[in-house]
Design a protein around this nucleic acid. Sequence first.
DNA 1: CAAGAATCCTGTCAGC
DNA 2: TGCTGACAGGATTCTT
Length: 278
Amino acid sequence: MPELPEVETVMRGLRACLEGRVIARAVANRPDLRWALPEGLARRLTGARVASFRRRGKYILMRLAGGSSVLLHLGMSGRIVVGRLRPNQPTLHEHLVLETEDGARVGLIDPRRFGSIDLVETAAEDAHRLLAGLGPEPLSDAFTPAVLSRALAGKRTPIKAALLDQGVVAGLGNIYVCEALFRAGLSPRRSSHTVPGRRATRLVPAIKATLTEAIAAGGSSLRDYVQPDGELGYFQHAWKVYDHEGEPCERCPGAPCRGIVRIVQSGRSTFYCPRTQR
DNA sequence: CAAGAATCCTGTCAGC
DNA sequence: TGCTGACAGGATTCTT
């Protein structure tokens, strides 16, 4: 589920409850998620002080005082829950639990186990094999129309597929690609090589605005990013095209608009308005 | 070499 | 109600 805005919101929630704290207890409930967990993960976390957090694409990095960092990806179904579990609250699929000295409890739940956890030297974070190939951060100044244009030049794949490629830009997923293309008025079917130039100049601000608004929705609707049930990072979305097949598009009220359609591109659902997205 | 398909898992939901 | 199949927001690995 989580794309950049959700990962950002989860990271802020983790920061609120873990930064500066000492992990008194760590329990790994299975030896692997997508891949084997690092050797001795729970042991290495126990007693460590959490120094800081950062996000890179859809990855969360939790830096420990000793010079190593935990690299976390939530995959498709990863969630973080904080606080004491209610007596009947199921702990099924809770693969990792952290408890701090001051009583906070953080659990990682991931039924599908597409998520991953690794340890990496803090000084070499960006050289990790999972981070080395990532494209620019979409919300940074490094992500410009010129940079995107260069990444798309010569590509024959549909722009939808190119934006899902984490090497082109890091952090977009199926939902926010659909939303950003709608905002930019670009068809998801358009060949990538036709985007550089004027269209990239529209697309980059559309991506930034889409992500920024989603993050703001996450931060503003929660107190310290924690919901009553203890889950971090999920919030009411206001998607304009994603999962709105057959509904009228807000860009063409009263117009001869067939509404939002769903197509399949490289096996994934795409939603768009064929009249306003060209 | 680039692009699309298959794949890893489990949960949910529509349809019969 | 219960079963079955399709599908799900990711990203690597395999195949064409």
